[in-house]
């Protein structure tokens, strides 16, 4: 049971940070590592809750940011890809979790309305394959170099993307 106790206390580590980098909490460390590797494209790194972070990524660098997350920072599980249709932009939100350090990072990438294209990350996380297909199917986001970008939930001959706000059924 002692192991479990340790783990649970590690999961809810306090938000207050020590001034020195030695005692820096893991959330800050990940955000700093990201910001140092991609100073131009990663912005607005914040910590939302213990264990949950948020950062904005420019879509041009999305693939390499994800690669860094997967290979260097140990975020090996892509939880969810969600796309939101705003008035002026599409936001594609990646929730990526780490099994080793029990963290979750929320990467927000933005595309303009008329060009909803981002890089596919299905070569980094195999689990992204169907989720990207779903985003393509329902929201019309196109994922570059996806192995099989087809409709998955709707029939193949459907012409619209139903989750867009301008869709009227």
């Amino acid at each position: 049971m002692s192991e479990g106790d340790k783990r649970s206390s590690a999961g809810v580590v306090g938000i207050e940070t020590a001034p020195s980098r030695v005692g820096e909490n893991p959330e800050r460390r990940v955000l700093r590592a990201l910001a140092e590797s991609f100073p131009k494209t990663v912005s607005e790194g914040t910590q939302l809750r213990p264990g949950v972070m948020r950062a904005k990524v420019d879509r041009s660098d999305l693939y390499s940011v994800c690669r860094t997350l997967r290979e260097d920072l140990g975020f090996e599980h892509l939880t969810m890809i969600s796309a939101v249709d705003y008035d002026d932009r599409f936001e594609i939100i990646y929730h990526i979790a780490s099994y080793q350090s029990r963290l979750l990072i929320e990467l927000i990438s933005t595309t303009p309305k008329d060009d909803p294209v981002v890089d596919s990350v299905s070569s980094i996380w195999g689990g992204a394959n169907w989720q990207e297909r779903e985003s393509y199917d329902l929201m019309g986001i196109e994922f570059k170099s996806h192995p099989k970008l087809e409709r998955i939930l709707l029939p193949k001959d459907v012409l619209y993307h139903p989750l867009r706000k301008d869709f009227r059924g």
Binding site: R7, G11, V12, E76, Y99, R102, G127, A128
Partner: peptide, 24 residues
């Protein structure tokens, strides 16, 4: 892990990850 399998199916493969413990 790579394919995004979660829950009991992943824990059966030896990954010790349960949101009830790890992100309570």
């Amino acid at each position: 892990i790579n394919l995004g399998v979660t829950g009991p199916s992943l824990r059966a493969s030896g990954v010790d990850y349960d949101l009830r413990k790890d992100m309570p």
